[in-house]
Amino acid sequence: EALLLQRRRVTVRKADAGGLGISIKGGRENKMPILISKIFKGLAADQTEALFVGDAILSVNGEDLSSATHDEAVQVLKKTGKEVVLEVKYMKD
């Protein structure tokens, strides 16, 4: 459990079709971090076996998301290339 509370760096390699394969919720306007709300089976994020629903995305390719709005986070995630480095931390409810 202590492991979950540490920052983790996960590299996601996207397939030619399909994006990261995650849905996010939260954002500055909700006074919440950007959280992974869904991981789609078989897509890139799922294949890492290292990302979990409830993980907060702290940064994407080094771009800090700690004070991002939901829309800003969506845009940052959309413009990523084939390889995406996510810094995440599991957030307890």
Results as ranks from 00 to 15, higher is better:
residue 68 A to L: 11
residue 68 A to N: 04
residue 57 I to Q: 04
residue 64 D to A: 05
residue 13 R to L: 13
residue 38 K to S: 10
residue 36 I to E: 02
residue 57 I to T: 02
residue 53 V to K: 05
residue 80 T to S: 15
residue 17 A to E: 13
residue 18 G to V: 11
residue 90 Y to Q: 14
residue 58 L to C: 08
residue 51 L to C: 02
residue 7 R to Q: 14
residue 54 G to F: 01
residue 37 S to G: 08
residue 49 E to H: 13
residue 60 V to P: 01
residue 19 G to V: 08
residue 2 A to C: 12
residue 12 V to A: 06
residue 7 R to P: 12
residue 27 G to Y: 00
residue 40 F to G: 12
residue 22 I to K: 00
residue 68 A to V: 13
residue 87 E to L: 06
residue 2 A to R: 14
residue 14 K to C: 12
residue 60 V to T: 02
residue 52 F to R: 12
residue 70 H to V: 12
residue 89 K to E: 14
residue 34 I to P: 05
residue 13 R to I: 15
residue 61 N to D: 13
residue 11 T to V: 13
residue 51 L to M: 06
residue 15 A to G: 10
residue 55 D to Y: 02
residue 68 A to Y: 11
residue 12 V to Q: 00
residue 34 I to D: 03
residue 10 V to H: 00
residue 51 L to V: 06
residue 48 T to G: 08
residue 1 E to R: 08
residue 49 E to R: 13
residue 14 K to Y: 08
residue 9 R to V: 14
residue 36 I to N: 00
residue 27 G to E: 00
residue 5 L to F: 07
residue 60 V to F: 04
residue 59 S to W: 04
residue 71 D to P: 07
residue 12 V to I: 15
residue 63 E to V: 14
residue 45 A to G: 08
residue 50 A to T: 08
residue 14 K to R: 10
residue 51 L to H: 02
residue 1 E to N: 07
residue 12 V to W: 04
residue 22 I to L: 10
residue 68 A to Q: 06
residue 53 V to Q: 06
residue 27 G to K: 03
residue 24 I to S: 01
residue 46 D to L: 01
residue 88 V to P: 01
residue 47 Q to H: 09
residue 66 S to L: 09
residue 15 A to D: 14
residue 59 S to F: 08
residue 32 M to I: 05
residue 50 A to I: 04
residue 47 Q to M: 15
residue 72 E to H: 11
residue 21 G to R: 03
residue 12 V to S: 00
residue 8 R to Q: 03
residue 37 S to N: 10
residue 7 R to Y: 08
residue 68 A to S: 11
residue 27 G to L: 02
residue 19 G to S: 15
residue 40 F to H: 15
residue 64 D to F: 03
residue 51 L to P: 04
residue 52 F to A: 08
residue 1 E to I: 07
residue 22 I to F: 13
residue 29 E to D: 10
residue 18 G to C: 08
residue 88 V to L: 06
residue 14 K to I: 12
residue 64 D to S: 11
residue 21 G to A: 04
residue 71 D to G: 10
residue 51 L to K: 00
residue 87 E to Y: 07
residue 93 D to M: 10
residue 10 V to T: 01
residue 15 A to P: 13
residue 55 D to P: 00
residue 10 V to K: 02
residue 26 G to C: 02
residue 55 D to I: 01
residue 88 V to C: 06
residue 72 E to I: 05
residue 39 I to V: 08
residue 93 D to W: 08
residue 56 A to L: 05
residue 88 V to R: 01
residue 72 E to M: 09
residue 89 K to T: 10
residue 61 N to F: 02
residue 11 T to R: 08
residue 4 L to Q: 10
residue 32 M to K: 15
residue 71 D to M: 09
residue 61 N to V: 01
residue 72 E to T: 08
residue 92 K to D: 11
residue 92 K to Q: 15
residue 70 H to W: 11
residue 49 E to D: 15
residue 64 D to P: 08
residue 59 S to Q: 09
residue 71 D to H: 11
residue 87 E to C: 07
residue 87 E to G: 04
residue 48 T to D: 05
residue 27 G to M: 01
residue 14 K to Q: 09
residue 85 V to F: 07
residue 71 D to K: 11
residue 2 A to M: 15
residue 50 A to M: 12
residue 57 I to Y: 02
residue 87 E to R: 03
residue 61 N to W: 03
residue 81 G to C: 11
residue 39 I to G: 04
residue 89 K to V: 11
residue 56 A to T: 07
residue 3 L to H: 08
residue 60 V to C: 13
residue 64 D to I: 04
residue 60 V to I: 13
residue 65 L to W: 03
residue 78 K to N: 08
residue 49 E to G: 12
residue 38 K to C: 10
residue 53 V to H: 04
residue 66 S to T: 15
residue 23 S to D: 14
residue 66 S to R: 14
residue 48 T to L: 01
residue 88 V to H: 00
residue 69 T to S: 14
residue 7 R to L: 12
residue 58 L to V: 08
residue 71 D to Y: 13
residue 93 D to L: 08
residue 20 L to D: 00
residue 40 F to K: 15
residue 25 K to T: 12
residue 70 H to D: 04
residue 3 L to R: 09
residue 66 S to Y: 07
residue 26 G to D: 01
residue 56 A to Q: 12
residue 9 R to L: 14
residue 46 D to S: 10
residue 70 H to E: 12
residue 67 S to Y: 13
residue 15 A to E: 12
residue 71 D to A: 15
residue 90 Y to C: 13
residue 90 Y to K: 09
residue 16 D to P: 14
residue 68 A to R: 06
residue 45 A to L: 05
residue 14 K to N: 13
residue 59 S to A: 12
residue 49 E to I: 04
residue 48 T to K: 05
residue 4 L to D: 14
residue 64 D to Q: 06
residue 59 S to V: 06
residue 61 N to L: 00
residue 66 S to I: 07
residue 88 V to Y: 03
residue 3 L to M: 11
residue 25 K to F: 13
residue 91 M to G: 08
residue 20 L to N: 00
residue 36 I to T: 03
residue 23 S to W: 10
residue 18 G to L: 12
residue 35 L to W: 12
residue 67 S to E: 12
residue 50 A to V: 06
residue 52 F to T: 08
residue 59 S to L: 05
residue 55 D to A: 02
residue 35 L to S: 07
residue 92 K to H: 12
residue 61 N to I: 01
residue 21 G to M: 03
residue 87 E to D: 11
residue 93 D to C: 07
residue 43 L to S: 10
residue 65 L to H: 03
residue 70 H to N: 12
residue 91 M to I: 08
residue 39 I to P: 01
residue 62 G to C: 05
residue 93 D to H: 11
residue 24 I to F: 05
residue 83 E to D: 15
residue 10 V to F: 00
residue 4 L to N: 15
residue 54 G to R: 01
residue 81 G to V: 06
residue 12 V to C: 07
residue 69 T to C: 07
residue 66 S to W: 06
residue 25 K to Q: 15
residue 87 E to H: 06
residue 10 V to Y: 01
residue 63 E to H: 14
residue 87 E to P: 00
residue 22 I to A: 01
residue 34 I to E: 03
residue 72 E to N: 05
residue 8 R to E: 00
residue 25 K to N: 09
residue 89 K to F: 08
residue 12 V to G: 00
residue 55 D to Q: 02
residue 24 I to H: 01
residue 92 K to Y: 11
residue 92 K to L: 15
residue 90 Y to D: 10
residue 87 E to S: 05
residue 7 R to A: 08
residue 48 T to I: 03
residue 12 V to Y: 05
residue 63 E to T: 14
residue 91 M to K: 06
residue 87 E to F: 05
residue 46 D to K: 04
residue 45 A to K: 05
residue 67 S to P: 04
residue 48 T to H: 06
residue 3 L to G: 11
residue 27 G to Q: 00
